[in-house]
């Protein structure tokens, strides 16, 4: 299980790097689009959709890494009141709720992605982007989120990490 947790956090981190790269790429493409449009006076057709899809993908691919960093904000009013034992039980419950949601999203997104791939779905724009490519980020992201949550449930249950992390509020910003 130690090995599993290490492998999953490695995967989440990798996914986080990809997501950060997508955000940076989006910034570059927006600037490129403005240059093409304003300075060169040419058409800018694909950039708008490319940037939108990049950032949607960055969100779903970045979510597991942000979970690892405990960056998903939560309400910690009740946990703050509780003693260590009850806090651990509640921490487990919270992580299990998160896990169930991520697994459900993974299950429903698989069929949805498959339909887009098999049906050859495209956007209705001039660019005609193939939708299965950006859609892939949802099954991949939710799968990694689920795996990350399994690792977290295990770590909280065995007392390896404190429930709800060390920081009050979970996120610093």
């Amino acid at each position: 299980m130690e090995r599993y947790a290490a492998a999953v956090s490695w995967l989440s981190r990798l996914s986080g790097y990809v997501a950060a790269g997508l955000i940076l790429l989006a910034v570059l493409v927006v600037c490129q689009m403005l240059f093409v449009r304003y300075a060169l006076g040419q058409s800018a057709i694909w950039q708008n959709e490319f940037v939108t899809f990049s950032l949607v993908a960055a969100t779903f691919l970045g979510a597991p890494y942000v979970l690892l960093l405990r960056g998903h904000v939560n309400v910690e009013l009740v946990p703050l009141w509780l003693g260590p034992r009850a806090k651990r039980v509640l921490g487990l419950a919270a992580s299990l709720i998160g896990l169930v949601f991520c697994v459900l999203v993974f299950i429903t997104s698989i069929e949805w992605w498959w339909e887009a791939w098999a049906g050859g779905w495209e956007t209705s724009s001039v660019w005609r982007a193939r939708l299965w490519i950006p859609y892939l980020s949802l099954p991949v992201g939710s799968l990694l989120l689920s795996l990350q949550y399994v690792a977290e449930v295990w770590a909280i249950a065995t007392g390896r990490v404190p429930p709800f992390g060390a920081l009050p509020g979970g996120a610093e910003a």
């Binding site: 910690e76 009740v78 919270a94």
Partner: peptide
């Protein structure tokens, strides 16, 4: 929300 589940996942579930 009171369990301390992240807001995003709490709304989702």
């Amino acid at each position: 929300l009171a369990t301390g589940t992240p807001v995003a996942f709490a709304l989702g579930i």
